[in-house]
Design a protein around this nucleic acid. Structure first.
Lengths: 338, 338
DNA sequence: TGAATCTCTGCAAACGTTTGCACAATCATA
DNA sequence: TATGATTGTGCAAACGTTTGCAGAGATTCA
């Protein structure tokens, strides 16, 4: 177990050993056409024997390309993002790119800092999700002269989003069809993408001549615990809702917990709809009705768009992926008014 | 929106503009003591105005230090790992390090490939979790001359683990205390760390003179779906178990689903214990009794150990963090034998 | 035989930094 | 006034690669 800092072997060392010039070694290792098979093989063998590992630092410096992209997310622990990260990472790797990952914790300063750090490392491009930079993306573009793709930020020209408007619409309409008229919405005030859901929510209600009751809209932050609190708050209303549409599945899980603690049956006493369709959502009790966001494919689409930008292709435009209502067992007919 | 490839400004450009040498610029930017305040300020101002972003590539090449560590995990989507990643990333960042993340998908070849890729990028060190390299870690050490810390691999000298032996023991003993004698175990054959749990399981049974029944040990893979299948298999036994100890919380969630689909009540008809204590586990229905692994702190400990290795400190030894049984509502008294 | 072509290899510059050393100018000291 | 210390700056090498260009032999062709 030798842990001392050994000097790494470089192309020069191989050159010396093989009695050729460094350039020849470099070419031999890259199967350059003009290298004799004899030299080629000898160099390759030596490189292997001497335990040579090329330095991508040095190479990137001259080729001006790191084959690396940076991915900024809000929290690693967010299960929705996990799948997205996987989509980015797998697709990137298949194209020969590696991925730097860093979290912004929904903090504007931190987000900028991460982007700068990526740029210093000369990543070929950057993908940002849950961006706080919404408003001044122009500034972003100005400050960092490298391709950037945003996820779920439709104001930015290069972005990938899920169609939340349609998703939310389907969800609320589903509830209306089941006879619900007191439908609550648990929002995520901190995230701008939340607006799409909320707008759809109100629109559907209006279309069905259902009065909009502000007390039925409560604020959350997209996490479990806030779902619980939101649920409790809604249940304590003089006239509680018969259905609750949630910002995401985690919030819905919290709401379900609140309902259970209040000894209410789902969906008999109250229906619940989530958003995201996390893997676990199908295994809840009861299995959650929710709007599926194609998180993996969103990651995939984002990295593809980024690679196009890196290659300098043009005609690239924002992409919107479809969402889909998955009806499971947390939604049912509205209870008869007693 | 200018997306064309602008030439980045370098130290030389600033030097030219300021009428000094590149070395002076470099020193000015690092607040080197021997620089006159006048020059210092002028250079700093120019650097800012010209939009200078230092190249960490070039710097790393000469300083021989990238201030970057590589983190290899099995799947990004594994919620247990998400917290661990967070522990690594936050702690790394506080020490001025960035993190490369890549997944191995539990594939040996892939894992080696990722490690090699990290080494090519000259990461200062590497953390591996869910390693498949268990047996020939010596080979690993030989092949990659850089500090490596493994998580949950006790055979490797530099490792951080949770005390699974004690955790599993607490879990099974808890079940025995509740009067259970037919206790099943859902394993994860693919992971060597599973052995600790299984050994403890058998040991506790022996200590209490409970016969070991091989049909009560079924194989899973640590994912939701395999938990469902394992549950179904156990329930179809001529004499099904009254309690099921699961490799991890996801498996337990699957088992709970199987029980629910079979119209069995938890814990009245069957008790269930998980392992990990994911955040969601407290919000399941019923809330899951489980063994808590300090995943965040494990990540933290791993990166700390790695930084010590990087600094060349000695006297470093494997670290084992405590686990803790969290009793919630999926465990109860064994049903009376009918 | 000479010229042209082809095959293989080396030289040297470049990428963008850092840093040891030398040097010039200024200043304080004796 | 000479001496030494101090302060600020520049030169040049180094980090480990890649690559355009040139050149040396070998081969082909007329």
């Amino acid at each position: 177990m030798s842990r001392e800092k050994r000097k790494l072997v470089s192309i020069k060392d191989i050159a010396q050993e093989a009695g050729v010039s460094p350039s020849t070694v470099s070419r031999a290792l890259h199967n350059h056409p003009h290298i004799s098979t004899e030299t080629g093989e000898r160099v390759q063998r030596l490189a292997h024997e001497m335990g040579y590992t090329p330095s991508l630092l040095a190479r990137s410096l001259v080729t001006q390309d790191t084959a690396t992209i940076g991915l900024v997310i809000t929290y690693t622990a967010d299960p929705f993002l996990s799948r997205l990260v996987q989509g980015v990472e797998e697709t990137a790797r298949n194209s020969g790119y590696s991925v730097f990952l860093s979290s912004s914790y929904r903090d504007y300063e931190r987000e900028l800092e991460v982007v700068r750090s990526f740029h210093e490392r000369r990543t070929s491009g950057i993908i940002i999700t849950g961006s706080q930079i919404d408003t001044d993306y122009l500034d972003l573009d100005d400050r960092f002269p490298l391709p950037i793709v945003l996820i779920n930020c439709r104001t930015y020209p290069y972005s990938v989003s899920a169609d939340k408007i349609s998703g939310a619409k389907q969800a609320v309409e589903h509830l209306v069809q089941l006879g619900h008229r007191r439908i609550a919405f648990v929002s995520n005030a901190k995230l701008s993408t939340d607006l799409d859901r909320q707008t759809s929510y109100q629109q559907v209600l209006r279309e069905h001549d259902i009065p909009i009751d502000d007390t039925l809209v409560v604020e959350g932050d997209g996490m479990l615990e806030s779902g619980v609190r939101a649920g409790q708050k809604l249940l304590s209303l003089p006239q509680p809702p018969t259905a609750i549409f949630c910002f995401n599945d985690l919030t819905a899980m919290g709401v379900l917990t609140a309902l259970r603690e209040a000894d209410l049956q789902v969906p008999r006493d109250c229906s619940v709809v989530g958003f995201d369709d996390l893997e676990i959502s199908a295994y809840l009790c009861p299995p959650l009705t929710t709007v599926r966001q194609p998180c993996y494919r969103m990651g995939q689409a984002a990295i593809r768009m980024l690679l196009q930008l890196i290659r300098g292709e043009n005609g690239i435009q924002a992409e919107i992926l479809q969402t889909e209502l998955i009806v499971r067992q947390t939604t049912g007919l509205a209870p008869e008014p007693s």
